[in-house]
Design a protein around this nucleic acid. Sequence first.
DNA 1: CAAGCGAAAGGTATCAGATACCTTGGAGGA
DNA 2: TCCTCCAAGGTATCTGATACCTTTCGCTTG
Lengths: 257, 257
Amino acid sequence: MTPLDAEHRHDQPTAAMAVADALAETILTEMAPGMSLPSEAELATHHDVSRLTIREAVKLLEGRGLLALARGRKAVVRQPDGAAFADFLTSVIRYDPKGLFDLIEVRLSLEVQSATLAAKRATRAGIAAIEGELQGMRDMLGAPGQEMSYEQEHGFHTHDVGFHEAVALASGNRVLGFLFEAMGRPLREGFFISRRGHEHRGHTLADTVIAHQRILDCIKDGNGRAAGEAMRMHLKDTERDIRVALSQLALRPSGRP
Amino acid sequence: MTPLDAEHRHDQPTAAMAVADALAETILTEMAPGMSLPSEAELATHHDVSRLTIREAVKLLEGRGLLALARGRKAVVRQPDGAAFADFLTSVIRYDPKGLFDLIEVRLSLEVQSATLAAKRATRAGIAAIEGELQGMRDMLGAPGQEMSYEQEHGFHTHDVGFHEAVALASGNRVLGFLFEAMGRPLREGFFISRRGHEHRGHTLADTVIAHQRILDCIKDGNGRAAGEAMRMHLKDTERDIRVALSQLALRPSGRP
DNA sequence: CAAGCGAAAGGTATCAGATACCTTGGAGGA
DNA sequence: TCCTCCAAGGTATCTGATACCTTTCGCTTG
């Protein structure tokens, strides 16, 4: 008996669901990402159901992120990534915007750990990747006091996110990497609300570069504790800016009733 | 342009996928968990596709955890939970058992934060829930030196997990709750391997109770820093036990080729 | 009048057969 | 040798039909 699986299963399992579970088991135990499943017709005869049932089972697994489907091609086993969880987190925030702060809170904890581990384990290549992103941020920064174009600001933000992902990668913890990947989109979606507030933020983009530089230095030194602390301070500042921006936004008449 | 969405979308979006996205948007913006979708026939005429396409779209969303389907009943919007991510983590570990340690590492960080936050925010009811689980662990503990039945051991483990979930709940951070829920199954699956090693573990179940008591005390005191530290120490011990058990297991001939 | 039973209505699950369009691989020509 | 084009195999989608489950409403009975 596996009561663990009963959570979101139904009383009377449907044929499609049975096939989906069987396929998932096969995929996880016998197949690797990139491999192709047999054709729908073959699966249908093999599992003794109609092709339609196979299609529904396969669609279920596609929703779970286990398979990639495309017209005219057999279903391909997917390298698992955080996309499914990203969808989930997005829906959580959409249901309740307060969840954004929960997400930020969790991210803070994970980022601190990420920086700490990166300081202990980062390879030369990993550090180079982090440095590359930081340099990218600098390149987007115009002359001091000069207004940035939208492209520049967007590019800066991209490299900012890239920096954090590079740190996660350097930590050598794959689950951390997945979580970051999964949290990226919901966070961006949440942050987008506060984009208007960026102009009034307490910290300039130059400050951000300095903060990142400090984190990188700690990682290079192999000082995990300091790296974690630097990351924590940086994120605390960011969080404060977001809170200010959101509260300003809340005071204005919203576009939606 | 929304390049963010393009990650796992296909070049030529299929009708089923378009309908699925449209449905997801509607669900997230206009519906609440528990509400029912229109019947397949209605959706078919509304979206101007056949019923089959609606079924595939709905199956996709079911796989994403957004809908619950049952025979003879309309599709019901689901309260989001961590099941989808649990599936994902399970697959990660199945592909690469080393991922279990990554998972444990992440959990440690989240548990520490969970305990820290719980100490700061826990309500009276939240603390009562944690106390209840701890008492449950004690009840399963037989007389000192006496052998425990399988039921007792299983019950103990259940309350152990319950304790940690109660702490996460008391932290008031919903995302943390989801993550714990999602990590529960993969961790149990991973731990199960080491069940045989339990007898040789360095720490007895009585020690575990003491460690949990210490955590609870810190939470009651509202001492976040101490609570986090107590949790960290407890988990470090647990992790060490698991590593020992797994390494012992690795030395024996495995049941599978 | 209330409670319980039963059948009809509405819904989903699954099957069979058929068409359109895409992808891939190979034959054939430049 | 390389490019082009066609055919085979595959998926995406539609139509129509059947089985079985859920809900509901009216009818019967105490």
